[in-house]
């Protein structure tokens, strides 16, 4: 369970961006956040993830499975992120990208996890390929699997489908939501595209005044 309580974010000059946002995402649930550009959706994800620019100030409480996480450095929050770009590390092979995320364990075990992830993505044989040689859809899948290999307890998705080709989107969406459900972790999805919303998923809208509205 990812829970946000009374989150308020304001810009450097004090202009409020988000006022009093509270929401909860249950294990395996993907909650969608929509709203106009500049409404602070991405800033909210940065705040939860722990890398909000120091020019902004934020208050409120964020708990993950009942534990406060705001005092933790980003790498200890166990919240994985996906962005518009896949952000596969360009100087590492696919396998190295995946291994970068696999937690400490005997080497054989870590490799097995990496291989399993590749198989999940239907990318057996791509282990030693540089990321730029993969197609957009393949890269998107690797990015998601890399995020999941880190065994996160929540996932933040910042418009991860918006740069994909139209005909790919449905596949990658299904791939993503299936994995989130299978892992039973909460996820927050920020998007402009109503089609991104998972079937039966809750949708919240951030209004121009920075408040949250259930749709």
């Amino acid at each position: 369970m990812l829970s946000l309580q009374d989150i308020a974010i304001s810009m450097a000059d004090g202009t409020p961006l988000i006022t009093a946002v509270s929401l909860e995402a249950a294990a395996g649930e993907t909650v969608t956040l929509m709203g106009p550009s500049g409404s602070g959706k991405s800033s909210l994800l940065s705040f939860i993830g722990g890398d909000l620019t120091s020019a902004m100030t934020a208050t409120g409480r964020v708990t993950l499975n009942g534990k406060d996480i705001l005092h933790l450095p980003p790498e200890r929050r166990r919240i994985a992120r996906l962005f518009q770009d896949d952000l596969l590390f360009p100087h590492m092979t696919v396998a190295e990208n995946l291994l970068f995320a696999v937690p400490m364990a005997p080497q054989a075990e870590r490799h097995a996890k990496m291989q399993q992830a590749l198989a999940d993505a239907g990318l057996e044989g791509f282990a030693n390929r540089p990321p730029h040689t993969l197609s957009g859809g393949q890269r998107a899948r690797v990015a998601l699997l890399r995020a999941l290999l880190a065994e996160p307890q929540a996932l933040l998705l910042d418009e991860p489908f918006s740069k994909l080709d139209r005909d790919l989107r449905a596949t990658i969406r299904a791939f993503t939501f299936d994995h989130i459900r299978a892992r039973a972790i909460p996820a927050l999805l920020v998007t402009h595209d109503r089609e991104d919303v998972p079937a039966g998923g809750r949708v919240l809208e951030i209004t121009a005044r920075g408040e949250i509205r259930h749709v």
Partner: peptide, 19 residues
């Protein structure tokens, strides 16, 4: 340097130095 790389790495539980 795109700050999202750091967000991604921390999301993968990497600390500052390994990142």
């Amino acid at each position: 340097f795109d700050p999202r790389w750091q967000a991604t790495a921390h999301g993968l539980r990497a600390r500052r130095l390994p990142f």
